[in-house]
């Protein structure tokens, strides 16, 4: 194998293994499985109860909107987990385990190491999404239909969506080279940006005009649009204000994934340079 590819593969493989150990070995597997699903299920239930409260007060019954919200929220687990999974790596290694200095000087690609560590979060997210959707179908009258012919499009959109997220996540991780450890808000706020502007939980058309423009410029908007068009039955499709056929949207996603990959490399190198220059690479911020 080409030595460069071999180095990246080795970095990825062991980082993914390390990520899995950090994620899961603090407790028994059964407890870890429960832990992994409670958060997304609780998150889904918040939306369910918001809907129940409004339906009770307003005396309305709108299953199409409810399905729209529920499915969007389920797939959003990927966004939160992937972004947080990549963002946390540097801060966790630098501040908590204080191992960044050793990992950094080892003969690996640190960029690939971050991606490898994030992979664990994506796998855990996939598990949580399946549980959330299954729970919705089983107990909350969520209806999902995915035709066999649509499967390649669904998978392609999914992979491109995840690649885009990893690119964005590495950009954030690069920023964390320079920020203090208490910046939970970044990990919380950037997914919030997509949560708000990409029409994850409500049709994009509900936003003010300027915000709709922002939403249309964000690639994840198209990932969620394609996904919902493919998995929700025709009678539960609602007008989101986004027009265009899925293949065009897929093309946009592919371009975005490539663009964020290039941007993530640039950001990573730039922030790494600044952190080294400022002597912040292994700083600890304990307040």
């Amino acid at each position: 194998m080409n030595p460069t590819i071999s180095r990246h593969w080795r970095s990825f493989k062991w980082a993914a293994w390390l990520g899995w150990q950090i994620e899961s070995n603090w407790t028994r597997p059964s407890l870890f499985a429960i832990y992994s699903v409670i958060k997304p299920i609780a998150s889904a239930f918040i939306l369910v109860l918001m809907y129940v409260a409004f339906a009770f007060i307003g005396k309305i019954d709108d299953p199409a909107l409810f399905n729209f919200v529920y499915v969007g929220n389920a797939f959003f687990i990927f966004v939160g987990n992937t972004l947080f999974g990549t963002f946390q790596v540097i801060q966790q290694d630098r501040e908590w385990y204080q191992t960044l200095r050793y990992t950094y000087i080892s003969p690996i690609s640190y960029y690939t190491y971050i991606v490898g560590r994030a992979t664990t979060k994506v796998v855990v997210a996939a598990f949580a999404v399946l549980i959330t959707l299954g729970f919705g179908v089983g107990f909350l009258q969520i209806r999902l239909v995915l035709a066999l012919g649509d499967l390649p499009l669904f998978v392609a959109a999914f992979l491109l969506g995840i690649l885009t997220l990893v690119g964005i996540g590495v950009c954030l991780a690069a920023l964390s080279f320079l920020t203090a450890r208490h910046v939970h808000g970044l990990a919380e706020g950037i997914p919030g940006l997509f949560y708000l502007f990409c029409g994850i939980l409500f049709p994009l058309s509900i936003l003010p005009q300027w915000a709709q423009f922002v939403g249309r410029a964000l690639p994840l908007t198209y990932w969620f649009e394609i996904t919902r068009r493919l998995v929700l039955p025709p009678e539960y499709q609602i007008d989101t204000g986004i027009v265009g056929d899925p293949l065009t949207m897929l093309g946009l996603l592919a371009v975005s994934a490539a663009a964020f990959f290039v941007l993530s490399i640039g950001m990573f190198r730039w922030m790494e340079y600044l952190a080294r220059k400022a002597g912040k690479l292994d700083m600890t911020t304990s307040y």
Partner: peptide, 22 residues
């Protein structure tokens, strides 16, 4: 910015959900 403004986005989402219901 990180603790004051960014978390507002998540809250805005819940606001827009109720507005969408409305």
């Amino acid at each position: 910015f990180f603790e004051g403004l960014l978390p507002l986005l998540g809250i805005a989402v819940y606001v827009f959900i109720y507005q969408a219901f409305g």
